[in-house]
């Protein structure tokens, strides 16, 4: 590998509810694999995608692996920007309190624990999308 590391901005856009389809889990796995390449990764949750982050998921009754705890590992994979679209939350009668508390440790601030989730409007999210090198939608 050359010494010149090219860091690109990656945004993963999550638009589907978990469990009903395979998209949410597939996206999460791609994010974790991609994180090994030390790129500038952020995640967005929009539409039914916001349901991926709900607290208290318990899949014992449906016999499917509960992958919601894995979102809490994203901070350890240096993923510090998790955008949740405000309008999508509101349309579903949800607030930030209904979602898991996701954090990361800020290397530049003596490893202080900080909130990873940022509530943004659809317009703001549109701007964030335009700033990316690569946008992957699931």
């Amino acid at each position: 590998m050359s010494d010149e590391q090219v860091t690109k901005k990656f945004l993963y856009v999550n638009r589907k509810a978990p469990y009903g389809t395979i998209y949410a889990l597939e996206s999460l796995e791609v994010v974790l694999i991609g994180a090994a390449f030390e790129q500038d990764v952020s995640l967005a949750f929009i539409g039914d995608g916001v349901y991926q982050l709900t607290k208290g998921q318990d899949t014992k009754g449906i016999g499917v692996k509960n992958f919601s705890p894995t979102y809490r590992a994203l901070g350890e994979y240096d993923i510090q920007k998790i955008y949740v679209e405000k309008e999508s939350l509101e349309a579903r009668g949800l607030t930030l309190d209904d979602l898991q508390h996701l954090v990361y440790e800020d290397e530049d601030d003596d490893w202080a624990e900080k909130d990873a989730i940022k509530l943004v409007s659809a317009k703001e999210l549109g701007e964030i999308m335009e700033q990316q090198d690569v946008v992957l939608s699931f």
């Binding site: 974790l32 994180a35 090994a36 030390e38 692996k65 509960n66 992958f67 705890p69 894995t70 809490r72 590992a73 350890e76 994979y77």
Partner: peptide
Amino acid sequence: QEYQIAPAVRVLTKA
């Protein structure tokens, strides 16, 4: 147990 995944080497080393 906590995260339902085995961590990548880089993450494991740090943790």
